[in-house]
Design a protein around this nucleic acid. Structure first.
Lengths: 214, 214, 214, 214
DNA sequence: TATGAATGAGTTTTCATTCAT
DNA sequence: CATGAATGAAAACTCATTCAT
C-alpha cells in the first residue's frame, strides 16, 4: 500500500507537529463537512472547532480545498483500515469472499455519512487530489479482485478472468449502495438481511455455470 | 405516473411563456452546472448563456436553487423519456430484461455527465425538492420491478419475491456505475462489452438455482 | 437606570475594540443618515466614511439595521447625558422645572437634526429595538414627572396627580416641537424667546386655580 | 383656501380620467404605505391593489415619489375636510375652541395611522412637495389662530397677540401627540378623557392672569 | 389607452485569505 | 509559532422604470 499522499505545503517546519495538527483539523472539519457540505462550511467554523485561530489553521494548510483533501483522504484510509483486518484469506475462497463482503458492507453502514460525503464532494477537489482518491478506491477493489482471482483459479467461481476486476467493482458499488439508497433500502432491510441477500445474489452470480450467452 | 412537479412561482403571467423561458434557462444552466458544479456557477453566467438579463432570469424563478431543481427535474425526466419507449414488454421475460438493461445503460452512457451531476448535487436541494427527485428514481426502479416480477411468476427468474425491489435497484446502480466509475470501466470496456458482461452476470444471478445458503 | 442595551453580535473578540469601532461607525453613519435618511444611505457610503473596508464594517455588526439601532441608541443616550446634569433638584419646584425645560429645549435645539431623524426612522427598527427606544423616552419623561410630582406635593403646581405623567409628556413634545416645526417656529422666535414663551405658558397651565370645568 | 397642488405630469389627456385614476391609486397605496412604509412598498404591490397593470399605473404618474406625494396630499386634505365642518365659530370663543380641540383630536384618533405615516415619510418627498405639505399644515394652524385671536380680542384668553400662532401650533402638536405617543397615552387614557384633560390644561394656560414672569 | 415582459444598475452581505503584531 | 483584525472581490437578489405591442 503506497503512502503516496499528495504533498500539501505548510509554513511549519516541525513535520511531526504538522501531522498532529492536521489530524486535529480533519477531526474538526469532517463532521461539519458531512453535515453542511463543503461549500456551506466556512473556514471560521472549522477553526472554531479546531480550537485554534484562523491564522494558526492557515499555518498548516494553504487553501480551504486542502482541508477537503485531507478529510477525503482521512475518510478513505479510515475505511481501508477498518476493512483490511477482516480480509485474512484464511479458509476457502467462498468463505473469504463472504467475510469480505460482510466486512465491507458493515463498514459502509458505519461510515455511511462519510461515504456519501466523499462521493458528493469529490468533484470539488482538484484533478490531482481526485486522482489520488481514485487510486485509493482502486486499492480497495484490488482486495476483492485478489479474492475473486483465487476463487476463479481454484474453481470456486466461474467468471472469466478478464471480468474479475469488474465484479470486484460491482461488489463495492453494491455495498456503497446501502448508503446511497438508504432512503429506500434501510426501510425494507436490516443491515444483516441486506448483507445476507446481497451475498447470496453475488454468490449466485459467481456460481459455476455457462458464463456467456452464445 | 403522477406529473406532480413542485410549483415554482414566477412574476410572469403568461404560463406558456414561463414554460418556454424555463426550458431555455435549463438548457443554459445544465451544461455550466455539469462542468463547474452548482456552487461554482454564478447566476450571472447562467443569465449570460440564457441570453437575457439577470432581471429577466429572476422573473421566471425565485432563487438560484430553483434553477437547480429545474435542472434536476429536467435530467430526470429526460432519462425517463429515453428509457420508456424501449420498455415494451414484448417477448419473454429474459428478452425484456435484456432489452431494458441495454436501454438503461445506453442512456446512462449518453447522459453520464448529467447523471453524475444529479447525484452529486441532490443534497443542495431543499428537502421538498429532494423528495420529488427520490420519487422519480423510485418510478424508474418500478419499471425494472415489473419486469422482474413477471419473470419470477413465469418461472424465468428464481429470486424471492420480496427481493425483487432490491434486484431492481441493483440493476440501476450497476447501470449508473458505468458513469460513476468511468475512470476505470471505460478504460477496460467498450459500452457494448460492458452491457453484455453486466447483462450476463445479472442473468446468472437470476437463474434458477438454490437461492439462499443453508 | 437600567443600561439594558440590546446585544449586537460581532465577529471580533476584543470587546474594547468592538466598542471603539462601533462608536466610529456610529459617528460615520449618523450624519449621512440624518442627511439622506436610512433607506437612501448605502452601507458602502458608511464604510467609506468609517475609513475602513466594508468587510471590516461587517465584522462589527450583522446587518444594516444594526447600524440604525446603534445610531438611535447613541442619539438617545446623548440627549440623556446632556440633560441629566442640568436636572439637580435644587431650589424650589418652579425654578427646577424652569431649569429643566430650559435644558431640555436647549438640547433639542442643539440636536434637532438627530431628533427629527430619530422619530422618522424608529419604525424601520425591529420590534425589539423599537421597544428599547421607547423605554429610553419613558426614562426622560420620568425626570419631568419627578419634578412635577414634587411641585404638586408642595403646592406649587395645581394639577391632578394622575395627570402628572401626561403633563411631563406634554412638556417633552412641546420641546421637540422646536425641532419638528422649525420651518415655522424658528422664523418667528429665537431659541431664547421660544424657551421663555413656552415656559410661561406651561407655568400658567400649572398655576394653582380651578383645574376642571364643572 | 388655495388649491395650489403641485402639478404631476401624466401621459393621459383626459383630465377627468386622470383625477379618477389617481384617486384609485391613492386608495390602493395608502394602506400599504401605512403598513409597510414607503420604501418597503413596491410599485408592483400598488399596481396589484390598484387592479391595473404597472404600465397603466405609470401612465398616470411619473415616479414612485409621485404616489407618495399624492398620498400625503390626500391624507392632509382628508384631515382638513374632517375638521372644517366642526369649526363653525358660533358661540363664545371658549366654546368654539373647546369644540375645535375636540374635533381635531377626534380626527387625529381616527386617522392616527395616517398621521404617523405622514410625519415619518415627509422627508422622502422632494423639497417642492414638502413645501406644499407645510402649507397645508399652516392652513390648519390658521384655523386655531383665528379662534384664538377672537378670544384674545374679546378678552376670553389672555395671551399676547404675537404668541397666538405659537399656541395654535401647541394645540395641534398636543393633538397629534395622541397618535405619536399612543404606546403610552392610550394605555392611560380613553380618547374622551384625553380630550377633556388636554382641553382643561390648554384653557388654564389661556386663562387671564399674569402672562410673563418678570 | 392598456399591458406586462424586459432591463440592469445598485443593494446588502459573505468569506477565504493575508499579514502585522 | 500563534493570533485575529482587516480586506475586498464577488455573490445573490431587487425593483423602479421603459417600451414594443
Amino acid at each position: 500500500m503506497l503512502k503516496k499522499t499528495k504533498k500539501i505545503e505548510s509554513q511549519i517546519k516541525d513535520k511531526e507537529l504538522v501531522e498532529i495538527r492536521r489530524m486535529e483539523i480533519v477531526k474538526a472539519a469532517v463532521d461539519i463537512f458531512v453535515r453542511k457540505g463543503f461549500h456551506k462550511t466556512t473556514v471560521r467554523e472549522i477553526a472554531q472547532k479546531f480550537g485554534m485561530s484562523i491564522g494558526t489553521l492557515y499555518e498548516y494548510i494553504r487553501t480551504k480545498e486542502d482541508i477537503l483533501y485531507l478529510v477525503c483522504d482521512y475518510i478513505h484510509s479510515s475505511v481501508g483500515e477498518r476493512v483490511k483486518p477482516s480480509l485474512k484469506m484464511s479458509g476457502g475462497s467462498k468463505e473469504t469472499l463472504e467475510r469480505a463482503i460482510h466486512a465491507y458492507i458493515t463498514i459502509v453502514d458505519e461510515m455511511q455519512d462519510y461515504i456519501i460525503f466523499l462521493y458528493q464532494e469529490t468533484k470539488s477537489l482538484s484533478y490531482e487530489a481526485r486522482k489520488y482518491i481514485f487510486r485509493a478506491e482502486q486499492e480497495m477493489a484490488g482486495i476483492f479482485e485478489e479474492i475473486l482471482k483465487r476463487g476463479v483459479e481454484d474453481g470456486t467461481f466461474s467468471i472469466e478472468k478478464k471480468d474479475v476486476s469488474l465484479v470486484a467493482h460491482n461488489i463495492m458499488v453494491l455495498g456503497q449502495m446501502w448508503a446511497f439508497r438508504r432512503w429506500v433500502l434501510q426501510k425494507a432491510y436490516t443491515l444483516k438481511q441486506y448483507i445476507k441477500t446481497q451475498t447470496t445474489l453475488i454468490l449466485n452470480e459467481l456460481a459455476s455455470r455457462n458464463t456467456k450467452p452464445d
